[in-house]
Design a protein around this nucleic acid. Sequence first.
DNA 1: TGTACATCAGTGAACGCGCGTTCACTGATGTAC
DNA 2: TGTACATCAGTGAACGCGCGTTCACTGATGTAC
Lengths: 192, 192
Amino acid sequence: MPAKSTYHHGDLRTALLDAALEVLEEDGATALSLRAVARRAGVSPAAPYRHYADREALVSAVAAVGYRDLAERLGAAHPAPSTPAQLADVAVAYVRFALDRPALFRIMFGEPCDRDNDERVAATVAVTLYLREIVARCFPDSDPEALAPAIWALVHGLAFLYLDGKLEPTDPAAVDERVSGAVAAVLGASDS
Amino acid sequence: MPAKSTYHHGDLRTALLDAALEVLEEDGATALSLRAVARRAGVSPAAPYRHYADREALVSAVAAVGYRDLAERLGAAHPAPSTPAQLADVAVAYVRFALDRPALFRIMFGEPCDRDNDERVAATVAVTLYLREIVARCFPDSDPEALAPAIWALVHGLAFLYLDGKLEPTDPAAVDERVSGAVAAVLGASDS
DNA sequence: TGTACATCAGTGAACGCGCGTTCACTGATGTAC
DNA sequence: TGTACATCAGTGAACGCGCGTTCACTGATGTAC
């Protein structure tokens, strides 16, 4: 209803981002083309070029949204985890995010990994620092430099193994349990 | 030199597989098209259809080769690991494989994950069983059903984080160390 | 308040591309007698 | 051993498709006076 039926859109930039997320959700990562996004936004194929230099720029912007959403979800799981159990909750949130929004997750962590895109690099650094911080808080005696990537890899690997069908995500509860179980097991704390 | 300069190829089926692996190595996973493979094999675009039903069939066959090669590499790292340190060697071999042949690794574990392809499903099952077996041998007192996927995820996650540039693979030795360190740390065995 | 005009944000047609796949075909191979 | 013929494994031209991107354009907006 807020849409003015006009020639000028108002905020096509973010409308395109929204459209891109919809395309991802409905048709998967491989369907994320500039034309598909423009189509869904109800706009001509050339219109996006007013707002994004090229396809890569749009995709990177989408990935940035993904990183923001992921951070939000992790923060919602626990704002400042300080015990292994709380860390496990964050881990569960990470994997849930991947299963909820598989295509977006793939865009964030998949192939192209354009190292020249500042936004993406910054997002990666932010995740790295965040993880190191919460690991340091949960395991004050550990070397977070070593432990944080290990935990990240564990959780990230679970996410991808589920996504790629190497582990069966029978039901959400079982997934949660496996994730927190793996984190706990692997950290030597034997209870979930 | 063995190539007969003839109309009939002799063994186009495997020649196409070899060509596909070359394409992967040189141009990456996104370049793996039927036409590109045919081109590299020196054959018309329609020729592959004598041997593979469609693109998906070829890609699945390539993935199967990948699984075979991976199994070979893991076996070479240690034929029958029975200590955490030996398990770490296998883990290192897994990540090295991913870094050596990133495009192949992506084909094996990437998006399409065609659940209907028997060959792929069988390969996945084989990996699962193999992992469970070696984990059970290294940790006789553990529950391999729970521990094996956790270790797989850890190693798999490291592989993908390197591949996607989230962890920097500064030099091979450092990678090896991080992998075996992570496995060791995570298993409570404190030395690499 | 009203008009002239620059700027902005779209349009839509067109380009060239590589792709998967099909088709009728033809050259080479192998088998039956 | 030699010939007739079926089968096999290629060719190459063509199809339709969706893509990224460009271009000259035009309608809407906002500013100067």
